[in-house]
Design a protein around this nucleic acid. Structure first.
Lengths: 343, 343
DNA sequence: TTGTAGGCGTTATCAA
DNA sequence: TTGATAACGCCTACAA
């Protein structure tokens, strides 16, 4: 390995001058600077990261803790974090908790010793544990909010509103909600938003209950929705919605005609199924990028880096596809399907 | 920050003794060891990573460079890498190249200065560039092979064989292949395997051409397959297969009855569509784990860690679902569908 | 078994 | 503008 000392010697300058030249600090003659830079390149000099960290105290590294890397939702956040971190001269250390709240604490604590700051995505741990963990500062939350902790989340209430408005505009009165796990922070947020939309009259939402946030959970919810006479189902997330779609199909109910279905997240598979899923799209990668920015400027930052606000709520967007359609008229039996039945 | 020096002072021992006690090295009295460990815990001591790296030379870190974190295929590999790294006491720094071959070189070079070794997943760069890059050692390939470079890949030829055997057993004679990009190493591997299976007689495979490895590519391929009179289509990957499925459906052809479709990868969406996709499943997470092991034992390793073999080819498995079925008999028009048509 | 001291590669603080 | 030199926190011969 070629060290700075060797570069200095080869260039015929002192260690200090070499250091200054390469980290383009002031107080180096233009001639020396160029000469040092050239010899460094010739020798293939690469600064030793750990040594630099030891003296500067900066790791140029961002941590990322998330429940499941293989889940496209989190993976997309991770991509955003990684992209922004690199743009600002930082690396990303990623840790997967396997959806285990207990691991969150350990991973965060361990990583904090190795990074300048860290992004904690969709933590499952209860609020009090979260508060204790983030007391150190240097932690930004994504898809979760907690008092006093900087965070990036999504305007879920507005997403719920868009979805419900859409369904009501289509004439649906009996809208059911297929919820996620009770312990889920974001499920609570959806429910609060739904309650706020409830006008106490005919247009109330039917609570189908809490389901596992999976395809299977959706299958289960679909039967309940049918039994409850719902003409539209709003789902905790797309996986649940896809499960509902599959079950409706299996039971001979035409999704997007007899029953409308709306999901949340806009996962890739939403466009791959038939009918394509109407869903609330979340700016996942953007959230990851913003979280990195909330952590503060990286090593590459100019001097005028403004201090970021503590909380950001990103706008969401309802993407209307084929799984939602006008409510079937009450009086008539399902009309003969004018489309070509393809099976 | 609490340093080892402070722990030593608090425990009333020397720096060296404290160090030995905490890294459970020999030559420490049991009493001192326990005492030091306790005071360290009480003081909340966390070893300083950079300092340790500087003296030991080990970063306890693994690098991971891949084309696209948001792609479930790579994300699953990443999950495996992360899981195995942590089990062996290492962190993972992940870098996303945005599918850009030019970035691969830069990312790998940069990361190599910060990690003990790195996993390069599905590199797009040409073979010669790869050879130059990996000459340093410390790099393991995943889903790609190169002479002299340790790698973990999949037994794709066997997967192709399983798929073709399956289709032939179902009576399909006109099997088409919807290929991936010409520059793709794994596409070349599939083609080689297909050629080997060609008996020169009636059972030859129809080459549909090269398509973008996306849903859209599949849509395009489907029309060609139909025009060529194929009764079965083997696809470069699941995304392409899903596109074929969608297009067949749109054109009124019953996938899984009139035409059989087989994919590659077994992405999550494969089970979410109707008909569910028959596909060749790849042990992606396992590949990530094995790649880490090929990098050598981590800091947590026992003394008897054997040296790993340089190449591993992981077995793959055809997962038969509803998108493949017996070939329609030549003479008769498509029989009336005995199933309840649900649409 | 314990302690002292040197060094890992860099940056930063002083004098010169 | 330069150049010694002292940290940074830890590990590890080497000496006691």
């Amino acid at each position: 390995m070629v060290t700075l000392r060797e570069v200095a010697r080869a260039a015929g300058v002192s260690l200090a001058t070499a250091s200054r030249a390469l980290s383009d600090a002031p107080h180096v003659s233009a001639g020396n600077r160029e000469h040092v830079v050239r010899t460094a390149r010739e020798l293939g000099y690469r600064p030793h990261h750990a040594a630099r960290t030891l003296t500067t105290g900066s790791t140029a590294t961002v941590g990322l803790v998330l429940p499941d890397l293989a889940n496209p939702f989190f993976a997309t956040v991770a991509k955003g974090v990684q992209g922004r971190a690199r743009e600002t001269g930082r690396e990303v250390i990623v840790a997967d908790t396997d959806e285990d709240a207990a691991q969150e604490h350990e991973q965060v604590a361990r990583l904090l010793g190795r990074v300048d700051g860290l992004v904690l995505c969709s933590p499952r741990m209860p609020a009090d544990a979260l508060a204790a963990l983030t007391a150190t500062g240097r932690v930004v939350l994504v898809n979760r909010e907690a008092p006093g902790v900087p965070s990036v989340s999504f305007d879920v209430p507005d997403g719920v509103r868009q979805a419900v408005d859409h369904l009501r505009a289509l004439g649906h009165e009996a809208v059911a909600y297929a919820g996620g796990p009770r312990s889920s922070w974001s499920d609570a947020e959806r429910r609060t938003a739904l309650d706020a939309l409830d006008d106490g009259g005919a247009r109330r939402t039917i609570d189908l209950g809490a389901f596992r946030p999976t395809h299977g959970g959706g299958v289960q919810a679909a039967d309940l929705a049918l039994a409850a006479g719902a003409t539209a189902v709003l789902c905790f997330n797309d996986l649940v919605a896809l499960g509902v779609l599959a079950r409706l199909h299996a039971r001979g109910v035409r999704a997007g005609r007899d029953v409308s279905v709306v999901g949340f997240d806009d996962v890739p598979a939403a466009t791959l199924v038939t009918p394509a899923l109407t869903t609330v799209a979340l700016p996942l990668a953007r959230a990851g990028r913003d979280a990195v920015d909330l952590l503060g400027p990286g090593p590459d930052a100019g001097s005028d880096a403004g201090l970021a606000a503590a909380h950001r709520r990103l706008p969401v967007e309802l993407v209307v596809r084929a799984s939602t359609a006008p409510a079937p008229s009450r009086s008539t039996a399902p009309a003969a399907d004018p489309e070509v039945v393809i099976r």
